[in-house]
Write a protein that binds this DNA or RNA. Structure first.
Lengths: 194, 194, 194, 194
DNA sequence: GATGAATGAGACTTCATTCAT
DNA sequence: AATGAATGAAGTCTCATTCAT
């Protein structure tokens, strides 16, 4: 048996992501995940203590990949504006191509699960290290390229519109073509630039 | 008699809103709603076909009130900029003071329930009537005060950041004081103004 | 529907007693209890928080009845010897006629459930009141009719042999006829009398 | 090789005894026994057909040792009284020092497992051989030292109180010091002596 | 022989919904 | 109209047992 997923754990995570995105946590019985992952129910409990832990594990998987995707092609030799637009563009492209990941995250953050985890990571001291492209970018205020605003507001102006648009895109209410993506990135930049 | 019925129905809706916001749809047994609303379980089924219908009814209640709140004090004699800032300010004040409503909406939209309903209403033809203050505002492009952008992008730049900030506010990650509200509204305006 | 048991709670307790005695706690699925009690599974959880609580409730029911049975016909005007023999006789008759109750108690006391409850009640201060026939009896040492021994030893000499014999009786290894019962009661008395 | 097998089998039996005594049969997963015995789960099934057989094997191990312990130091040249007291003392000392063995036996006998096995062995014809010290002792009636009672009653008066006291001792309700042990043995003797 | 990953039957429990009162 | 006791489908999780390595 040579599955695409090299190990059972990954097969379970992938199946869980699909089901959770499609049906929500509470309409995805563990038995269904097992069927989709082509494993026995009991196997899921070998790899994950319970359903909650599985949900968190899916989050970690999705979030890690998203973090990486966001900073792809971020060239620190470019202007702040160009970097910012690259970042937003990355984000939209990545998530728009991955509706399951986006739906999962939306659901996760607005559930009791995500209320603990949150995107608090952005704001935590220990994540504010120099290697974080965000921080370099938003410290542009010191360089006079962006306004001097509280960090949460930068984040809100960056991620808020993107999330809102992605929802509409997923609903089929709007088509996220390159023009719209470019317009969005520039509008966000205009919101925070000097 | 109809007034008594109205009261009972309202009591149920209110109890449901509280429980749903606090515990989520799936951790709010109908029996618990009944207890909180001080009615019998069976009575809930007299007013609402099933739990799903109740959830949608709560949404309608919350959404209607929100729509009204947003356009409060919108003086069409003011400048587009001032009207826009008033609108965003209304929205933030209203929802920040009503965490239950906000949590409910977040949960509703990112669940299988909301995926159908959506905030599609904003974009539906039949809501694009002249009496809608939004439309007047976003038709400012014709007056040269805001950029000529697709409607969904206006909405994204208006509501996206607000929602993002409100989440952080509810999480306690940020305090939404008047300064921050003002900064947010202006940043959003800068994103779309000419 | 006019059942023998006047209410559902009693029907459940009775069914549970039967099953527990026959198959043990862990081989008596709740679903089976429900079937035997002729109620729905869910109904059991209306009356008892969980299976553990049901087990404890059965114990209370059985133990209460046993306590009453033991002191039946205890005439304090009789001699200590006669009272003692009456007590032991009561106990044997009662439990020998009720194998289910006996099996249940045996199982309960030697399980994690009973380890907490124990027959500690006999030894607890607050049960050592004057209305307790046991205490009056075992305070016979002050009247010179029984030896001056620690209370636990009285209890051991009274109940220990009875329990042991009842086990054999249930196993069919011995027949507890009146002669044997009388011999047992007298042997126990001889063990503690002056 | 056989010595290695023996060790592995013993390790399993010992681990099983500990877990069963501590947690009960049904709260002792085979996997846990394996971990404690430091063997693979599969190995347990090499030595024992299934969990039931393991339970019975533990019983045999514990019971054999107990039988041996009881007749230790039984000097047939001593008086019946002295032999009897030695026997009871042996029993109490042995089991009071081995709470696991005692707990296991209690649980075994009051479970569906023990209902079959029972301590029937005492009463079975084939165990009533002359080499059994019990039989010699209880045939004292023919020598006029003990009353002429049915064998089951002798056993009840001998073992019943001991078991009852040991329970209390394990529960911490009583301390089985030498005085109490002596008093117990004598009380039992008084119950059956002429 | 030894191992432990994999399995699925089956246990406990919850809760939306019904319906007799 | 109002109630809430009763129900059982369905969900989560455990664990004895197997079998490929």
């Amino acid at each position: 048996m040579s599955s695409i997923l090299k190990n059972k754990s990954d097969a379970i995570l992938q199946a869980a992501l699909e089901q959770f995105a499609e049906n929500g946590f509470h309409s995805s019985p563990v038995s269904q995940l097992a069927t989709l992952a082509e494993v026995g129910v009991g196997s899921i409990y070998r790899y994950f203590k319970d359903k909650d832990e599985l949900i968190h594990a899916v989050f970690t998987m999705v979030d890690d990949a998203l973090q990486k995707a966001m900073v792809t092609h971020l060239d620190s030799s470019l202007s702040d504006r160009q970097q910012f637009i690259q970042l937003v563009t990355n984000l939209i492209h990545y998530l728009n191509a991955r509706p399951q990941e986006f739906k999962f995250l939306e659901q996760y953050y607005s559930s009791p699960y995500g209320s603990q985890t949150k995107h608090a990571k952005f704001l935590h001291e220990d994540s504010v290290d120099q290697s974080n492209p965000f921080i370099n970018l938003f410290s542009g205020s010191q360089k006079g390229t962006i306004k001097d605003l509280p960090l949460p507001l930068y984040l809100a102006m960056t991620f808020g519109p993107v999330i809102f648009l992605l929802r509409d895109s997923l609903s089929g209410l709007v088509t996220l073509d390159n023009t719209l993506i470019q317009q969005t990135a520039e509008a966000s930049w205009n919101a925070i630039k000097v």
